[in-house]
Design a protein around this nucleic acid. Structure first.
Lengths: 228, 228
DNA sequence: GGGTGGCGTTAAGACGGCGTCAAGATCCGC
DNA sequence: GCGGATCTTGACGCCGTCTTAACGCCACCC
């Protein structure tokens, strides 16, 4: 089911959105401030985010930027502000759409459909495989030539983030933020230990990793194939 | 260059859009009715379409549907109609965004950027390449004819700043400030050593640099191509 | 022609990050 | 309340990177 995260400090609007979106078959999560929103998003990544600009704790634009660091889901910004600079800022921060209050529910739903339709191709492939192991993202299973491997929740989460975009370097910051939450951005020891565990379970030769590569001082990278 | 097709029957607005978009570096084609628009689009597929709902020959929604049949470029609909059903129809027909007139030019430009950004993965990602090496900024990878090159964090940071605006001179001050921080503005020795390392890894002949050029007493410059 | 300042090169040492292991803390199901 | 799995935390050795210094070269100026 399509997960929608709604961030707004107005209880009434929050309730209306939850009811309307749920009725359309979306899996809705509602939160009332930016910090909770970022935490919720990193715990269970949403397929779409609706965020109000006027939040009690942090600026809505900051929430957009925080999400965009690692999350490609479309973001629709709500705001009572009709001023142009506000719209430009939000859109350039990474938002996909900007809707001014008051708005019609039918229009918002149409914009949600449009945003999801555009983002759809990204939510594709469910299986990633290398010479040494195969990852079934949908069924949460990993198999190696010697049989099926059991991963702990943390290991799985870590692997998911790394595998999401093969070949792409993921910074330590991004990994920590997404797996452990924004408050753990500096706990690089976690990464070392759990990466070591993952390698022990997946790599043919854990001491010389071929697929889960360290980029010293920057982050880690999943490489599907051996270059050369 | 990014091709934008603008469809509107108002000559004034058409002119304003052509001038503004061209000034931002877009390759603009303007047409005044739906039939011509569909013909133009099939001749040279655009990267983005801006279409007015109130066209003289056929309905704007029909234009959107006609394009969506074979073209995945983002479509932004313009309209004087504020009514909700019109927005819903246009969005559900395949439009990516709906802007009501009158609108601010800055907002429209921001929405154009947002739409193109979302569609970007199909177009390809940020890559800077020369005859001697290729830099993949998104994946943080550098390749030369002899294979992939590993850069240290500092070297990456330095290269990123230099490559950000190809051909442009970057002063020593700017480099030191961005890579090491404001407190290191005078440590030009750092630059010499790390630039030497970068050249050793990237330049075909590190002793006679072709791409990472020194401007004595001022700073450094990244030159994508050999000036004869 | 000698002096000076900026630049490139090289090498050595200090420093910090990384992988590894193992023990304590915590959570969860039974 | 208990036991097992999982996560956190600390210690240690190793290796790569950054810093720092010394030296030679070149262009420019006096």
């Amino acid at each position: 089911m399509t997960r929608v995260l709604v961030v707004d400090d107005d209880p009434q609007l929050l309730r209306a959105l939850r009811i309307t979106l749920s009725a359309r078959g979306y899996d809705v999560t509602t939160v009332a401030d930016g910090t909770t929103a970022l935490a919720a998003a990193s715990r269970t990544p949403p397929d779409l985010v609706i965020v109000d600009l006027g939040l009690p704790d942090i600026d809505g634009v900051a929430v957009v930027e925080g999400l965009r660091g690692w999350c490609t889901a479309p973001i629709i910004v709500l705001s009572a502000r009709h001023a142009e600079p506000a719209k430009v800022d939000a859109l350039d921060a990474g938002a996909d759409d900007y809707v001014t209050k008051p708005f019609g529910m039918d229009e918002l739903l149409a914009r949600v459909r449009a945003a999801l339709r555009r983002a759809a191709p990204a939510t594709g492939h469910a299986i990633v495989s290398t010479d040494a192991f195969t990852v079934d993202l949908a069924n949460k299973r990993v198999t190696t030539p010697t049989g099926e491997v059991r991963l702990t929740p943390t290991e799985w989460h870590l692997l998911e983030v790394l595998i999401h975009e093969p070949g792409k370097l993921v910074t330590q910051r991004q990994l920590l933020q997404q797996v452990w939450g924004p408050a753990y951005e500096t706990e690089t020891t976690y990464l070392r230990v759990h990466l070591a565990n993952l390698r022990r379970k997946l790599e043919p030769d854990p001491a010389r990793p071929r697929y889960l590569i360290t980029e010293p001082g920057i982050g880690y990278r999943f490489t599907p194939e051996q270059p050369v």
